[in-house]
Nucleic acid binder design. Structure first.
Lengths: 328, 328
DNA sequence: CTGAAAGCGCTTACAG
DNA sequence: CTGAAAGCGCTTACAG
């Protein structure tokens, strides 16, 4: 590929002048500019960002790491991040780590080697060695839709409050026997906190909780199917379910409907995330909405600002909302 | 950040030796190796890929461009691509272009500037100027799930054959009055070809086509809703629908069910893509399956091979299948 | 086994 | 307004 040296030779100027013209630095005649530009176009020149980045010690790249097989809502995070990056001439480089975060450390190293100016990590529970590694990194890192100890900034929704609101929403719609389906016990962020919020809402309204109503799972569609089958066998069957993901909620609804129940008449269901499957459910799913696109945008903006001004990133709790549809 | 020069000073060797050790090039004593490695770790050293890439003229990056707001199946393409890339130490850098491909040319330039070793472009109808630009690029480009003229290699399913199979599947299940919903007239790849396949299947089985059965759209969920509402008003109502996307198929099913119809008893529906929403539909959606993950893998492998051996990429038609569920 | 040196393609102070 | 030169952090032939 042609370099500025080739252009310089062709145009009969120095590489310094070529560089100035190409970067609009000023300090050359209009005639020089035209000549250089013409030659550059004729040669089909593309500037070498690696060389420029090396010289300027700025790769203009943001890294994004997320769990494997999670077409869930990551699309929106990617798009939000990439849109603000593109606006400022940044690129975003993506890597998937296994869901358990085993190879996370290795992938973080690769990002560091590529000299990303910042890194956003989505939805992992971070092991201690990874936290240590992150704290030693010479560029900003921000967690999205997850959190760890306070050493790493995060952008997320208040899961406990959202779970509380979801449960209370069900209560306000006349339900008393309310179950919670899908949370993972070992997940301190998205699992336990949501159970807490659920319990707090029930407590506040003096509603008893039947332990059988708490059905653990892995946030999946199948978990919803299993949950509903489990509820069917209960003598004290719940009349409403707070589901910790949209997928799980849909599994619950489909199973209930296939068994002859009506949603929401016989059993009301509220989901969590408000991914695109929510409105495609039948009945359309009422759900807690997490602003994923916005999370991606915020993460990108915070990183680019932090990289530019060398200011630490502040954590941020984003507001959740309830998108009302037909399942409650 | 520390450089090999810092390590060299600390370890009391030359930068050449540091480089050799760090790259496992051999040609040093075990003692030297240990000393260098120890110093490198203590300094929290991360190699600078930009510098290495500049020197070796190989960025070890693959670019991926896809349309905005398309959480549809791109997740799988990304994962497939990224998994093979990661295996070979490549990174993947992502950019979204507006759906109409307006800013595609600019984004391709940015990819070229980052010296990607290859580029995969998903699902765009390419304008002539973009085709010209691509043909002038000094690295391999491959289209995924779309195609243009024969100058650019592609990886896709045979849309016409798949549409033919979908339609014939409906016929084999006893349906005669078959509609097609959702295709975009202006889309030469995913739109017109699928209509052709549909028509060919109907023709082969001597089944008449009522022009009212062909309902154009944009592959969206809403298009399905509109399509079904349209079919409801027909005196000659179809008893089965071939939908050009899963989303559109679900729009059709939900609308039909809400109006009291049974799926598939009153109206059978077959989708296209087999994205994750298909099995979450109620009834679960029978659909043509496109192997998106595999497409991403193939694209990545072809590009890395082409970049390594400088061999042109061969187009490839991947087999589609019909995933049978409950909607037909 | 090891080091000095050239060079990848840029940017940018410095001097004129 | 323009150019010569240094330098970003590496890799790699060359010489010893």
């Amino acid at each position: 590929m042609p370099t500025i040296k080739d252009i310089a030779t062709q145009a009969g100027v120095s590489i310094a002048t070529v560089s100035r013209v190409l970067n609009n630095r000023g300090g050359y005649t209009e005639e020089t500019r035209k000549k250089v530009m013409r030659v550059a176009e004729n040669m089909n020149y593309y500037r070498n960002e690696m060389a420029a980045g090396l010289k300027k010690s700025a790769a203009r790249i943001i890294g994004l790491i997320m769990p494997k097989s999670s077409t869930l809502f990551y699309g929106d995070i990617i798009e939000g991040l990439e849109s603000v990056a593109q606006q400022r001439g940044y690129g975003v480089i993506i890597a998937h780590a296994s869901g358990d975060g085993i190879n996370l450390s290795e992938i973080i190293s690769i990002m560091a080697e590529r000299r990303v100016e910042g890194l956003v990590i989505a939805s992992f529970a971070l092991a201690q060695n990874v936290i240590t590694q992150i704290n030693g990194l010479p560029f900003p890192v921000v967690l999205v839709s997850t959190q760890s100890d306070d050493s790493i900034p995060y952008i997320k929704v208040d899961d406990e409050a959202a779970a509380f609101d979801a449960t209370e929403y069900l209560i306000q719609h006349g339900h008393q026997k309310i179950a919670i389906a899908g949370p993972n016990v070992t997940d301190k962020i998205a699992g336990m906190t949501r159970i807490k919020g659920y319990e707090r809402a029930m407590m506040k309204h003096h509603l008893p909780i039947d332990p059988n109503w708490i059905f653990y799972g892995d946030f999946s569609f199948e978990a919803g199917i299993h949950a509903m089958k489990h509820y069917f066998q209960l003598s004290n069957r719940p009349e409403a379910v707070f589901s910790v993901s949209d997928d799980t909620a849909i599994g619950i609804m489909n199973t209930a409907i296939q068994e002859g129940l009506q949603v929401p008449a016989d059993i009301a269901v509220i989901g969590y995330d408000n991914t695109r499957v929510a409105r495609m459910a039948n009945p359309a799913l009422t759900a807690i909405s997490q602003p994923f696109f916005q999370m991606g945008e915020k993460a990108g903006n915070k990183i680019m600002s932090a990289a530019a001004d060398n200011i630490p990133i502040q954590s941020e709790i984003l507001p959740h909302t309830i998108v009302e549809r037909q399942s409650v």
